[in-house]
Design a protein around this nucleic acid. Structure first.
Length: 236
DNA sequence: CACTCATAAGAAGAAGGCCC
DNA sequence: GGGCCTTCTTCTTATGAGTG
């Protein structure tokens, strides 16, 4: 009779996290362990499985066929474990969530929605970080954030959930004739924009170039407040 | 050179056995 | 039951190897 192996759920969590994050180093960061600890866990998992689950792929590791199979079972085991945990201990949320927000959302959501959430779930400690879009996505990929509310056009991003699709629009100072926006002395449209890298700035300049409209950077700011002030002052 | 993972040596803590 | 010792497991830091 073959004696079944009992897999360690902590090891499976490291395994799944490493595959999902695309790096076992990042998985170690997220799980609060060293990379060597995760490496040892993977070694133990392969010993238990009796077959290689990972193979070298460039700098990183990739799943073998057995690894793919193990990943599917690991996800099911962890999901079942988490369901059991909630069923036994109740649904009261607790723990720490590292949340990233842009200034746009931070101004509105931090005092209102996050305040409501904090009152409803006092056991949850929210560490909110307000930063530029690119920085949020970088920190999310690096495992420094658990969750981020950000602009993105990459529909293939793992674990990304599209919350809304919003049309872009131009914002400028009130003009008497909207068809004849203000131009500078050279006839170029003065732009007020975030400093690079900025998703919207690229889209805006591409649209202007396509339309054959000359433009110039009139005001560059790292902050949203700076942009609003510049537009209100009629700088662009 | 930076990044990623592997390995070695040692530390810390839990578990079990033994003795009083 | 409590104290002591040993063993085992898992972790850490430091370092090395391989890769782009």
């Amino acid at each position: 009779m073959i004696r079944p192996v009992t897999f360690d759920l902590d090891v499976l969590r490291s395994f799944v996290a490493g595959v999902e994050l695309g790096s076992f180093g990042r998985a170690a960061d997220r799980l609060g362990r060293s990379t060597s600890a995760v490496s040892a866990q993977l070694k133990k998992l392969e010993e238990q499985a009796g077959v290689p689950l990972l193979r070298k792929a460039g700098r990183g590791l990739a799943l073998t066929d057995a690894g793919e199979t193990m990943l599917a079972y690991a996800r099911r085991l962890l999901e079942l474990n988490d369901q059991a945990s909630v069923a036994v201990r109740g649904t009261r949320l607790q723990g720490r969530v590292r949340l990233g927000l842009q200034e746009d959302f931070g101004e509105i959501l931090l005092p209102q929605v996050l305040g409501q959430f904090a009152r409803a779930h006092p056991q949850v400690r929210i560490e909110a970080r307000v930063a530029r879009n690119a920085e949020l996505l970088e920190r999310l990929a690096a495992g420094e954030l658990d969750l981020a509310l950000a602009w993105d056009h990459d529909a293939t991003r793992p674990h990304g959930v599209r919350l809304a699709e919003l049309p872009l629009c131009w914002i400028g100072p009130a003009v008497t004739d909207p068809a004849a926006p203000a131009r500078d002395a050279d006839g170029a449209l003065p732009l007020v924009a975030f400093e690079t890298p900025c998703l919207f700035r690229g889209r805006a300049t591409e649209a202007l170039d396509r339309a054959g409209i000359a433009w110039t950077s009139a005001f560059i700011s790292p902050s949203l407040a700076g942009l609003w002030a510049a537009v209100s002052a009629g700088l662009g």
